[in-house]
Amino acid sequence: MAKYLLLKHYRGAPAPVNDVCMDQWTPEEISAHMQYMHDFAARLEKTGEFVDGQALAPEGTWVRYDGEGRPPVTDGPFAETKDLIAGWMVIDVDSHERAVELAGELSAAPGAGGKPIHEWLELRPFLAAPPTITE
């Protein structure tokens, strides 16, 4: 019973095996990809392991506090930002091995030519609740 975040990157991850930009795929290949992601989430709901899944717009705004009584400063987006998150899925699984297995399946989503993308996904454990019994 541990939660993991599967992070999908627009930018910042190592190059996938099937490295073709999405705008170079056929419309059918894009549909097949979307269907795979949808089916994957639906399957995790059925196994009782799905917690959340969201996609993010590629462009956002940087915001920071600018002192008492002043509106926040906004800036960006910065083209040089190395890491760009495309979306995530949160799973609740029995073991780290299971989390790796599921990330592997998600990474097999089809891309150009209907072949798996072999995309690198980042797997990050949640910091859990502390156990009661420690000694």
């Binding site: 939660k3 059925k46 196994t47 009782g48 799905f50 959340d52 609740d92």
Partner: peptide
């Protein structure tokens, strides 16, 4: 109690 959606827990139990 386990911070998962109700639908997920329902599936876990029926499974």
């Amino acid at each position: 109690a386990y911070l998962v959606p109700e639908a997920t827990m329902a599936q876990r139990i029926s499974r």
